[in-house]
């Protein structure tokens, strides 16, 4: 029943969230393969305000930890580094996408199914928070 309600919610809620001048669009948690301790969330974060905003962290409901991370490939080696803060200039959009910036979701309490949502709370340097309901979706790859 909860899952059904969540599904209905994803239908009626636009897949965006905003708080003041900050907005999140195209948020997605790709459905995780079995057996993983960590997976990822992606989105676009836009600052429509007049001042630079600083993203300093993220919380994810149902996970022991969530970190801002960046994947990089240097000399054919895939590495990940934690990101302490990301500045978003006025008018700028920061893109979280596979192979780059992502939210690392660690130690899930339970595995999600397609249609579930993950509540992310983005934390900013000025103390503001931005809650985002992110749908769990099976990603389709293609050219």
């Amino acid at each position: 029943m909860t899952r059904f309600l969540a599904f209905i919610l994803t239908l009626v809620m636009p897949l965006t969230a905003s708080a003041g001048d900050l907005s999140v669009t195209v948020a997605v948690v790709p459905l995780a393969p079995p057996g993983v301790m960590a997976h990822a969330a992606y989105f676009n974060l836009t600052n429509d305000g007049a001042e630079t905003r600083r993203l300093i962290g993220v919380r994810a409901e149902g996970y022991a930890m969530a970190h801002l991370h960046r994947s990089e490939e240097m000399a054919d080696v895939a590495t990940m580094t934690a990101v302490d803060a990301i500045d978003i200039a006025p008018g700028q959009s920061i893109v979280f996408k596979p192979g780059g910036l992502h939210v690392m979701l660690m130690h899930p309490a339970a595995m999600q199914a397609e249609g579930d949502t993950v509540l992310l709370t983005l934390k900013f340097a000025n103390g503001e928070t931005l809650p985002v309901q992110v749908p769990v979706t099976r990603l389709r790859h293609g050219s």
């Binding site: 993983v36 990822a40 994947s71 490939e73 979701l105």
Partner: peptide, 17 residues
């Protein structure tokens, strides 16, 4: 490795396609 949150699932998804 399985707990690779970003690069491995993306690469395997692309390899499938």
């Amino acid at each position: 490795f399985l707990s690779c949150p970003d690069v491995c699932p993306f690469t395997l998804g692309n390899l499938e396609a």
